[in-house]
Design a protein around this nucleic acid. Structure first.
Lengths: 239, 239
DNA sequence: AAGAATAGTGAATCTACAC
DNA sequence: CGTGTAGATTCACTATTCT
């Protein structure tokens, strides 16, 4: 079982992955949805948009969160198109998104040639209250398949909603880090012994989850800092 | 506090409602998403698509579930446009949708001039497992506001996810009936003493919920059969 | 048990610019 | 030169969960 992190731009690296490699694509792109004015979106760093308090100073920033909705749609379509090529027939694709970008992301998923299969809400127990309104309590995972979904030898039945808190304290390495428990549940959809392809590896949580679930893993990460963090965590998970 | 059911086509009746009447629009349109082919959508009745087993024979059918996605978007936009006119500044709009129509419905909500505020997943505890995939466990409620949302004198904090099973057995009057408990939670967003406008009343569950939450109610229902059922339930809820 | 954090938001204040 | 508007900046704020 092979596990690796490749440092580089997602589109550029994806084009070097041989066709039919992946059994599951799991993508957690920058949502590009924070900020209330176009200027705020363009100029504010991801740190300022999403984090308040101490974490703003302790965690490294990440780039690529400044696209407007049209170019976000185009860009994520190109990414998902390359991912389709890199995945085999029957593979699944899981894309994280927030409520604002959900429609654009579902368009991109289908434009890239994936068959849209459903939405899996990710429920986060820690979240801000909204005065005189409904809490923004969930992010969403869009599920697509490359043709007919893979039929598992041993049938599996997966949840319709996943729940889990973001890591906190010293376990938190990335501003938008996803909990490993949540990723372990999602990764079940990958055929046994298959390979998980992760074009936005970040701190590598999906790699840790893939290793724990006995799947191969290819992660792509743009920033050198996070590529290092991810390699470190991947190694630790193997021991 | 006034409660009434008007029998007629939603668009036609909405145009007779005075501007600024409603404090909350709660719309549960036919989803028009069942069936995998255009032919299946056109020819199957709602009963066949959504119900299996006994209920198929016992519950009355409902029309209007045969639009394709483009005309669905256009039609629901026109409905929501009339609803915006019929609602006052600060009013909210809650639209039920399933995962397939969520992007089209969010387009329509915004095209009609509502400000999109979020997604509230409705989690149904009773649902079918999916072999080799994720459960289809949720429907979704899109939340929009007419301008800035109403500021309640007594601040309210509403949940980010609502839960409740569809009524079963003799309590079930309509194929796509929503639980009164879920609607009671949602109706909190309506200003106190305000009026709930429901362009697709069906068996009138939203009216029952509005009455229990001390809000006024105007329901519109196309079929004579369900308009009668709704009036009956509304009367019973008042006693 | 106390403290800190939350893929934020709305209102108020301030600045720049056109008329 | 005063006025009005649009855009940018700042600040206050909320309740549950987790350390």
């Amino acid at each position: 079982m092979h596990h690796q992190i490749i440092q580089g731009d997602a589109l550029a690296v994806l084009s070097t992955i041989p066709a039919g490699t992946a059994g599951l694509v799991i993508a957690d792109p920058p949502y590009c949805s924070g900020g209330r004015t176009p200027t705020e979106r363009r100029t504010q760093s991801a740190r300022c948009k999403y984090v308040s308090g101490d974490a703003r100073h302790k965690l490294a920033d990440f780039p690529g969160d400044t696209r407007d909705q049209r170019s976000y749609t185009l860009w994520i379509t190109m990414i998902l198109l390359e991912c389709l090529r890199a995945s085999h027939d029957g593979a699944s694709c899981l894309v994280f998104t927030d409520w604002r970008q959900l429609p654009a992301t579902s368009d991109a998923l289908q434009a890239a040639g994936w068959t849209w299969r459903g939405i899996i809400p990710w429920r986060k127990p820690i979240n801000r209250p909204t005065r005189d309104g409904f809490r923004r309590e969930c992010e969403y995972v869009l599920w697509g398949s490359h043709g007919q979904p893979h039929r598992h030898a041993q049938p599996i039945y997966l949840p319709g909603v996943v729940e889990g808190s973001q890591p906190r304290g010293h376990q938190r390495q990335h501003i938008t880090q996803k909990p490993v428990d949540v990723l372990r549940q999602l990764i079940q959809i990958c055929p046994e012994g298959g390979t998980v392809l992760d074009p936005f590896a970040g701190s590598g949580s999906a790699g840790v989850a893939a290793r724990l679930e006995a799947r191969g893993y290819i992660g792509i990460e743009l920033t050198e800092h996070y590529a290092d963090v991810a390699r470190q965590r991947l190694t630790e998970a193997g021991t």
